[in-house]
Simulated scan of single mutants.
Amino acid sequence: MEDDERVGRTVVQLLREAGYAVDLESDGAAGLIAFELEPVDAAILDVRLPGLAGGGVELCRSIRSLSTEVPILMLTAIAARATIVECLDAGADDYLVKPFHVDELLARVRALLRRAPTALPPQVRVGSLILDPSRHSVERLGRTIPLTPKEFSVLEYLMRRPDAIVSTGELIDHAWDRNYEGYSNVVPTYIRYLRRKLAVQGAPDPIVTHRGAGYCVPSDV
């Protein structure tokens, strides 16, 4: 949630380019409603957020009262110690002073997701596939495979649920965002891209299609 529309759009673009599904709210009250309705892996809040008397700090307290597990990163243009202490006391896990560097924002988001109580190991291994989010790299049978951010996001979601059948709707919810209104074949298209890039002669298909149900990465791939 960000009060400055320009900054908000920039943050959203940076996170989406890094492969994250992102929803943006510019109002604290709307942000709280969105949090109550939609599952989120992390929240980024601006301190000076309209819609609530206490701004982003009040929203942070409200989110923390609903969940002790969701990581919260506060963005603030105020470097004063009192403001930082207020954010941390309200339940924030970290803070970042504006203006910030792109690499630092992304590194802090990755760190928060790694520290979350429900977080899985940073490096994911499923059969012959090795995925490392911190390096944004994928390997199979010793070969490094370049992927776009969206391809990486789809594969990571599948690999963190080996043998589980993941529906098209679930992939859209986690790899895109709730406002996605693109073409309906987007998931099959990206699955096709991934199969083509991950294919190794003589090795099994890394992604299995269960018609009418979804897709999975077998643990013995």
Rank of each mutant, 00 (worst) to 15 (best):
C60L: 15
E25C: 02
D46L: 01
R16E: 15
V40A: 14
A29Y: 01
R9N: 14
E38P: 01
A21N: 11
E17P: 13
L52F: 08
R9M: 15
V57A: 00
A42G: 09
A42H: 01
G54T: 05
V40E: 00
E17D: 13
E36I: 13
L37I: 14
T10Y: 04
G28A: 12
A43R: 10
L37H: 10
G56C: 10
P50I: 03
A21D: 02
G31D: 00
P39E: 05
L49P: 12
C60T: 14
D46C: 09
V40Y: 09
V57D: 00
R9G: 12
G8E: 13
L15G: 07
G55A: 04
R9Q: 11
R48V: 06
Q13I: 03
L45N: 04
P50M: 09
V47C: 06
V57K: 05
Y20S: 07
G54P: 01
G55R: 02
R9A: 15
L14P: 04
V11W: 03
L49A: 05
I44D: 00
Q13K: 05
A42Q: 04
L49W: 12
Q13Y: 13
L24C: 06
G8M: 03
Q13S: 10
E58D: 14
R16H: 11
V12P: 00
P50C: 15
D46K: 01
G55D: 00
Y20L: 05
A53E: 11
G56K: 13
R48Q: 10
A30R: 12
G8K: 05
R16K: 12
S26V: 08
L59S: 08
R16P: 02
G56P: 05
V12Q: 04
A30Y: 13
A34P: 09
A43W: 02
L32C: 06
V47I: 05
R16I: 09
R48I: 06
A42D: 02
V11N: 05
A18F: 04
R48F: 04
Q13C: 10
P50H: 11
T10R: 15
C60I: 13
V22H: 10
L24P: 00
G51V: 09
L59G: 09
E17K: 15
F35I: 05
C60R: 15
A21I: 04
G8N: 12
D41W: 03
L59A: 06
L15P: 07
G19Q: 10
L52Q: 11
I33N: 02
L37T: 11
F35D: 02
L45W: 02
R9L: 12
V57T: 12
V22K: 01
D27K: 00
P39M: 00
L14N: 06
D41P: 04
D23R: 03
I33V: 15
V57Y: 09
L59T: 08
I44S: 07
A53N: 08
L52A: 06
A43H: 03
L37P: 03
F35G: 09
V47K: 01
R48S: 14
E17G: 07
P50W: 01
L24T: 10
V22F: 06
G28F: 03
V11P: 11
G56A: 13
G56M: 09
D27F: 00
I44F: 11
E25S: 15
G51N: 08
D41M: 02
L49N: 12
G51R: 11
R16Y: 05
V47R: 05
E36V: 13
D41Q: 08
A30C: 12
G19W: 05
R9V: 09
G56W: 04
A30I: 10
V47A: 14
L24Y: 13
L49H: 13
G31M: 01
E38S: 14
D27R: 04
